[in-house]
Design a protein around this nucleic acid. Sequence first.
DNA 1: AATGAATGAGAATTCATTCAT
DNA 2: AATGAATGAATTCTCATTCAT
Lengths: 206, 206, 206, 206
Amino acid sequence: MSETPRSLPAKTRRKQLIKATIKCIAKNGLSGTTMADVTKLAGLSLGIVNLHFETKEKLLVETLRFITDEYRNGLDKIFFNENLSTEEKIRAHVAFDFSRAIADRNKLAVWFAFWGETKSRPTYHSICADYIDEIAQNLTQLFSILKNEQNYQSVDPELVCTCYTALSDGLWLALLLTPKSFKADDAKTIAMHYLKTQFPNNFTMT
Amino acid sequence: MSETPRSLPAKTRRKQLIKATIKCIAKNGLSGTTMADVTKLAGLSLGIVNLHFETKEKLLVETLRFITDEYRNGLDKIFFNENLSTEEKIRAHVAFDFSRAIADRNKLAVWFAFWGETKSRPTYHSICADYIDEIAQNLTQLFSILKNEQNYQSVDPELVCTCYTALSDGLWLALLLTPKSFKADDAKTIAMHYLKTQFPNNFTMT
Amino acid sequence: MSETPRSLPAKTRRKQLIKATIKCIAKNGLSGTTMADVTKLAGLSLGIVNLHFETKEKLLVETLRFITDEYRNGLDKIFFNENLSTEEKIRAHVAFDFSRAIADRNKLAVWFAFWGETKSRPTYHSICADYIDEIAQNLTQLFSILKNEQNYQSVDPELVCTCYTALSDGLWLALLLTPKSFKADDAKTIAMHYLKTQFPNNFTMT
Amino acid sequence: MSETPRSLPAKTRRKQLIKATIKCIAKNGLSGTTMADVTKLAGLSLGIVNLHFETKEKLLVETLRFITDEYRNGLDKIFFNENLSTEEKIRAHVAFDFSRAIADRNKLAVWFAFWGETKSRPTYHSICADYIDEIAQNLTQLFSILKNEQNYQSVDPELVCTCYTALSDGLWLALLLTPKSFKADDAKTIAMHYLKTQFPNNFTMT
DNA sequence: AATGAATGAGAATTCATTCAT
DNA sequence: AATGAATGAATTCTCATTCAT
């Protein structure tokens, strides 16, 4: 194992601790995650969390914010990419949803761990509510543009967005619960299958 | 409120405690649920959990099993109801998924609380895996029969089952996360919308 | 050692813990007093403080209140005793100030431990301010009555009260700091010596 | 505020830290005084205490010694001042006891903070015992000289010294506990009032 | 069957001290 | 001489479990 330098920029340390926290939550659950576990996994001392995050709760919040930002930023890059057509953007969105970085079982476990506590923790809820809204607006807009571009009469962009979002959440759950029999590619196939029912002239090949 | 008798059949006490546990998990999250909270909410003494469930862990497992059984039994009643047509069975399935009893926010919070810990707790996982499989088989069969009855050529019953299941899981999450703007009826509409894309000649009216 | 019963009335347990706390503060200082020390000295388990006092801070406050109440109640019994003359009441007051129960080195250490933190802890301050005022009023009244009864022209009862109070506080400090060379009886002699200067016709014999 | 030079004579740094310690103890109590607080208040780095005092304990001891020396040196200057008469020396002593420099609430808080820990800390005790003795000897001698000079028959110089010392300690406590209603001038008045009872021909005017 | 005071292992947090820069 | 990130022992607090009544 390579020696970590004794002193590092605060940002690096925070990221190091957040990554260890993700692994820990995936391994032990939110309730089973102790500061001792996290710091040991990070190869650091017990007191360091307090130094960089003050409390365990704040570390958890920052961890949720980290995966939230990662997801949002990834989607924003697609949404604001001027080189992609609308269809390509939607395809890229789906591909991103079930990519290595996002549909990673550790991160999925973290998502669901926080969602499971959302009702009782206003802070978790507000962090989630925040990004859900923004992404839904962008995706609805994409469906709306595609509808107009390609003259799909009966499509309801908002409904399709809600349906697609729920579907991808449910597919993530399936990836988390039945990792043996259900893979990211299966999930992507199903997501595309739904989009094809709405936009039959698009989304035809893989 | 009427006085609880000091001595009651064990089964009644167990149900009483499980119901208190559901409320507690919804209110405080899985990690924030203590035996003191549960027993106080049930109006019983601290020691009673040990008497009826031995450990907290076993109470939690029984709680998960309780909502799991409730869901499975409800669906079984529909599936084995000889008075219903296949379409009616599927309609009833959807109606049940978003009924008062099932799409109750307390129970949804419990589902997601356990799912969030699933990766780290083999027991929770095996309880979930168990019922998921059985229900998927039944639902796939219904789609398969409908396909043959009504001559839907291109429908893949297994894929539709997986897609519907993921969709309803995702809709439950939406009900949990955004209860203000998204109601059970909205969820049901979206679920039916998906089924209509697969079986356009069925599921036409509300 | 006699076995303590496993379960006791809450009041008894609280007193038991407060007494152990007094000993601990005297032995280790306020900052050196740990819950582990207190509970070990009381022959009880670590968790019991939380059960009866919630936090360490509350145990400390109750401890201060305990010695405060003991002092105030003792003086009240003297002040409201109808069988004593005014001079007898003042004599009893002095005797009480330097009695076994009050001029006990453990308790003195506790008094000064709290006084030393008074400036930084509003709660400690308010508990002290409370009783100081009440006692000063009563003592001033005694001096006032004695002045009138015995026709002492130049005595200022309020000033004598403040002076006596400061003197007895200082004598307590001497008892705490130089226990070898300075005893309760010496302190009492000095206190009486001061009173004799103000009321030469009273307070003549021991 | 002017920049502190990065490198300064050790003595200056030590005094700087001791002054910050006094403020900190007054503000947060002895138990609430951390190295982080002290060094921040001094505008210096956390590691500097170790450099100049080795341990926190040694810094505290030096702080106690600092206020102790300040008090003792002030009194020595009076005692060995050949230009003052005995009465003037005693008057100066009282004036010093309740001067700005000594009856400062920060320093009083420090005195009582240490006295509160004296019973459990032999080091603190020996520092205190040391100066108490020396001052008592000097003051007794002054009273003794005054007695002989002015022919006070019944005065017991040692008793008067003990009484005055206790009184001034108690007055300091009053200044600490009830700063609003009790000021240094009030304390001085009471101290002089006591001395007048012993030496009625002296100490007549302010 | 039921109670709830007591227990004590386990977890978060604090903070004096260290040490590479 | 000075810095401040990092350490980890010590302490408080939590809470599932026990057990005498």
